[in-house]
Design a protein around this nucleic acid. Structure first.
Ligand code: SF4
Ligand code: SF4
Lengths: 143, 143
DNA sequence: ATAAATAAAGATATATAGGTCTTTTTATAT
DNA sequence: ATATAAAAAGACCTATATATCTTTATTTAT
């Protein structure tokens, strides 16, 4: 449903949000530990998130990751778009090329509805909101 | 959303259903042409479908693929289960190992709902039904 | 029986996703 | 200024999904 890298990214960003609220800027090591992701790989995908402006980073002693305030609200849609490409929301169903409703694939009618709900959901869910759930103990970042 | 092989499989089976209803047993070549899939690869995944009992085959002159009547109704759930594994329906959200609602990941609450709808949809959609849509011109198998 | 048609099997190739390791650059505390 | 801590960059490695090609086994028409 979501690529592994996207799963990691969401959890990482939620953790950063929580830490930021407490005035801390977690580094790659902290993140990897907290979300149970491979450390080296964590560096790689954090680099990607930074390059795409989803989060910011500071090198050097005392550095780490943090949010630029003007990216808010940071919803999952933005993250999925960067990591999975817009094909995730456009291309669907049976994988035709030029998908339109004029010559739909056999599953179009019902499928498009579920797809739309997922789209709406990813728009509604924000890193800030998810972080709140975790802080309130309603959700966890690793198992 | 669905692996490419699953997309191919669904379209192939819908085509076979239509042909069967007209008393024909299409072969790999016909299928590949009709659903716009690579011919050699089509042989491979048809082999897989046959091995898992989703469809039957006859070798030799006049052979081809056809349905055993006692697999009906053949819904998409069965197909997805074979090709993507049951993880497709179980494992979800942020990819935790032991997923339960006691210690949910941050997106659990809303995500599980969409997931369930998809599950229900795949149960409702059958090869027979989809074939009907195609026959009525409400859907097409390739573009 | 033989030839033709066809799926099955298996070996191989290619692309993409996922992951690791090493080196370089940058920032800051001292 | 220097040492240290941290992210960035880039070269690799590995596994999986996707795809192709060649050969073999099976069925049926003749
Ligand atoms: S569901 Fe609709 S948009 Fe998606 S592949 Fe099928 S026809 Fe195209
Ligand atoms: S949505 Fe629920 S079941 Fe799915 S990964 Fe999150 S906690 Fe687990």
């Amino acid at each position: 449903m979501l690529a592994k890298i996207t799963e990691y990214a969401i959890r990482a960003l939620v953790f950063i949000e929580i830490q930021n609220q407490q005035g801390a800027r977690p580094g790659v090591k902290d993140i990897a530990r907290e979300i149970a992701s491979p450390e080296a790989y964590t560096g790689k995908f954090m680099q990607l998130l930074t390059k795409h402006g989803l989060v910011r980073s500071m090198k050097g002693r005392g550095g780490g990751f943090f949010f630029d305030q003007n990216i808010r609200p940071l919803n999952l849609q933005k993250i999925v778009l960067v990591l999975e490409g817009e094909a995730y929301f456009n291309k669907c169903g049976l994988g035709f090329n030029g998908c339109d409703s004029h010559e739909p694939c056999p599953i179009h009618k019902d499928y498009i509805r579920v797809k739309q709900e997922l789209f709406d959901l990813f728009e509604k869910l924000t890193i800030e909101g998810l972080a709140n759930d975790v802080k309130k103990g309603l959700a966890v970042l690793k198992k």
